[in-house]
Amino acid sequence: MAFNCIKNDKQIYSFVYSLKDWIALKEDKTSSFNMACCGNRAILKTSKLGTQFFAHKSKPETNDCSTGGETPEHIHIKYLVSKKLFECGWSVEVEKRGVSNKGEEWIADIYAEKGKAKIAIEVQWSRQSFIETKRRQQVYKDSGIRCAWLLRSGSIKDRDAIVGDFMHRTKSVPVFSIYKTKKESDSTYQVYNICKVALEEELRLDPLDQTELELESFVENLVSGNIQFRSKYSPTSQLSLDIVRLQCWSCKKPTNTVMKVRFKNTLYDIDHEYSHNSQDVDVCDKETIEHINSNFSQSYNFPPLRSRYSDTVGSSYIANSCIHCDALMGRHFLKSWGSYYSNKIVETNKITVPRNGRVLMEFGTVSFYNRMVDYDIGRWVLIDTIER
């Protein structure tokens, strides 16, 4: 099964023909059709799925002309993608062979060019590890080709990529899931940008709706630049404080105290805010404490936050102090009395700081950092689905 053949010494492709023109081409008795792979006589066929293709009139003597064991669904998807790319004005080749600038060979399911742009779309119908996908992606990158992957999904309830390694979508490896229900004869292939396993493991609500497109619409939006990557984590945060004037437990004089540290950044380019209460300020990293002290301490007249020993706790932690007597304004004191001063909160201005090196996770009211930020992780989304 092939999508190209030689007609009267000129190469043609089956996906460029409408159904009407394909039927007319089948009835053309004056032209010669020969397989591009071996030069033997070719005939024009249409599969049960609607794939228009060329086949050997007689069984080839060698296996050099085989389709490599591809399933009819795999071949049909390649046909539909190629046809849509052609309709979008791209020059298309199927099973295109090439060599990267590092000498590594590649064979693209679908290869297309338009102007200076070079793309490949791989339809992965069998299992392939994420490590192997990354390796092949790098080969395309070394060849100056952008590549997207369509990975078979197992069921309508499980739209994940076919192995768990793909649960994190990345900018460097654009991966999408493709599925078609077999219960409806007229159903179409659907492409998804989600991974169910990843969503279930998220401890925050995901602010993005899943992208679900028919295959042809997906291809059109992909090459039109309407499917873009949105990083999950922003590289910077907006940092501000809540300051409250409290009476020192020791000297009884009023002193300004940091009651809350606020961070505002984005999650998939959507505004997202979280905060630490004063009794939890020690979970802020060293750089954040330095930003607080250098940018707010003098302006808002409070002592720099620093590590203090607490007899009550029996250990040291980052804490407030009294500006007059330097007494520790400890966790227990602030937790007991801070709520009575909510009407006296002063919100500071915001400053831009590098984002914390780890991701804040939450279980109920308990907050903690559990993993390093990976700025390559995110989501490929249809841009008009993003709410601002």
Rank of each mutant, 00 (worst) to 15 (best):
F33L: 14
S342E: 08
Q190S: 11
F15D: 00
P60I: 08
R355H: 12
I270L: 11
S237F: 12
H168N: 09
F33M: 04
E122M: 09
K116T: 14
R355Q: 12
G115T: 01
V81L: 08
S172W: 02
K344M: 09
D269R: 15
S316V: 14
R245P: 03
E70H: 09
L85S: 04
K48Q: 11
S32R: 13
G314M: 14
Y317L: 11
M372F: 13
S126A: 11
R152W: 01
R169D: 00
T288R: 03
L49R: 13
R169I: 04
D384R: 08
S18V: 10
D186P: 07
K344T: 14
N221H: 12
T170A: 00
E132W: 12
W249F: 09
V281H: 06
C325N: 01
G98Q: 02
P72M: 07
L19I: 09
S342F: 10
S297G: 02
K57M: 06
I156L: 05
G89L: 07
A161K: 13
Y369A: 01
L382Y: 09
L222D: 02
F166K: 13
Y13W: 11
R159D: 09
D28I: 06
N277I: 08
K57S: 06
N277D: 07
K78E: 03
S82W: 13
I110R: 11
K20N: 03
I131L: 13
H276E: 08
L215N: 03
T46L: 05
I6T: 02
G378S: 06
R146T: 14
S177I: 00
G115D: 03
K84W: 01
R230K: 15
H74P: 07
I351Q: 03
T170Q: 06
D269V: 08
L49K: 12
M1G: 08
S187F: 03
A42K: 10
K114V: 00
Y79A: 08
R204F: 06
L241Q: 06
S66A: 08
G330N: 14
L215S: 03
G378N: 10
G98K: 11
I162E: 03
F363G: 01
K171I: 08
S321N: 10
K134A: 07
A112E: 10
N8M: 11
H74C: 05
N226H: 10
I383S: 09
P235S: 09
E87T: 13
I23V: 07
I43C: 07
R388K: 15
R379V: 12
K335R: 14
S153H: 08
V359S: 07
S250N: 06
E202R: 05
G357A: 13
I110S: 05
K232A: 01
D158Q: 13
W22V: 12
C88F: 05
L241A: 09
Q137T: 15
